[in-house]
Design a protein around this nucleic acid. Structure first.
Lengths: 226, 226
DNA sequence: TCAACATTGATAGTAATACTATCTTTGCGA
DNA sequence: TCGCAAAGATAGTATTACTATCAATGTTGA
């Protein structure tokens, strides 16, 4: 059986819903590839338009600027992760096992679920999120963006993970900070592993997955205590 | 007694050493204030030049571009932190106590040391680092920049902290990752606390310092085990 | 004291970026 | 076939991120 999820996005994220047209979908999908290839700073709507065989002005009809496009892509990613967490922890009784299943999802060490969207390059999107996601909120206008609910998917995911942590240990005091730091640590350490490996203890390649072991140890050692 | 440290900076960080001239020092000091006020993206050499009563071209004689200026400021900060860690842990016998003294330094909850530089606004620089430091390395040219040793101060600080962790527990397997994730967690939890508080458990204001308690718990729970 | 040099100031200029505006064409559904 | 929405096409603007050049100033040291 093969089907795919459609994620409903907050309307504040775009000027015109990119999922409602062929051009819009191509902007998002190619946008992911371009940002992955040349990075956020080097990405321009002109370059993206050239790749799509369209014009800058057409892209501006969908997104106010490239920062909003990034926020959209990142928001989509968080919603997709949240979906995966729900899917993978469904019908699991043990809170420990739920958290065990969470970790590979955060690192995208997953095999496809039946609902994997087949037209979005998830591997590229994961790379973009590692490198660029923090630029979505590390801005001077973070408060305004937050007021527009642009970061709700991230907050929802953190809330979901905080819930799992509290299932595991209802007396743990820092569930939300633990959740957000788990996600961020997974990403930073992935980036460091690949680009500044001396900041990590993961010399080799992802076969043995020391990063996963690190995250597991870090998570459980903290939440197994009061 | 009052004196101040002079931090020796890597020559690759600048075109002309800003500490060797009045204009250069003002570029760095005012640059910190401008980046703190309007953020990295909005900062331009023109705006900074106007504030200094000088010209864009003069600033370009010191720094290739504003990214390099950011990297310089951040590198200076890491060296300053490293100095503080050395100073505050000097003559302390207990590895636990050393780590206890490290934590307030990372959050800059410190009273001035005798060597505090009096002409750099450390509070502003700390804010800039929290918000902007990751933009120093989250780029497509991170590998080139790393080759030029631009991130050496950060690596040195992580190495120093990893050393303290290994003093505390010589069998701990992830000392370097633990060090880098400790620093990063301190910073983005600070950012979240101020800007996206629902991602943290630190509702109130910095009096009781729940963030410090969180970091302490997170650090010791992980390194007290194998 | 004068010559040489380094630093900064002042002005100009260029290519690219980040948009906005407008007008035309295309295609689709009622 | 009319009307409308989407996209194409073209143009234009302010700003950014530089680079180049030359003049003014100040400092050194022969």
């Amino acid at each position: 059986m093969k089907y795919s999820v459609h994620l409903q996005m907050n309307e504040k994220l775009f000027l015109r819903d990119p999922e409602q047209s062929d051009l819009g979908r191509r902007i998002v999908r190619q946008g992911i590839l371009v940002m992955n290839e040349i990075g956020f700073e080097e990405t321009t709507f002109r370059k993206l338009a050239d790749r799509l065989g369209t014009k800058e002005a057409s892209i501006y009809r969908y997104f106010e600027n490239k920062h909003r496009l990034l926020v959209y892509m990142v928001a989509w990613y968080w919603q997709w992760l949240d979906y995966q967490v729900v899917y993978e922890t469904n019908n699991i009784a043990s809170p420990r096992e739920k958290l065990e299943r969470l970790l590979p999802i955060l690192l995208q060490r997953t095999t496809d679920t039946p609902a994997t969207p087949d037209d979005i390059d998830l591997r590229a999107l994961h790379s973009v999120v590692i490198r660029e996601a923090s630029k979505a909120y590390l801005t001077r206008h973070v408060t305004d963006d937050n007021r527009e609910q642009l970061f709700k998917p991230y907050k929802d995911l953190c809330g979901r993970i905080a819930g799992l942590i509290l299932e595991f240990n209802p007396t743990y005091k820092f569930a939300r900070s633990r959740a957000s730091s788990l996600i961020e640590t997974a990403h930073y350490q992935s980036f460091f592993m690949e680009n500044l490996p001396s900041l990590t203890d993961f010399g080799g390649h992802p076969t043995d997955d020391a990063l996963l072991a690190f995250l597991r140890h870090l998570l459980f050692s903290s939440i197994e205590r009061g």
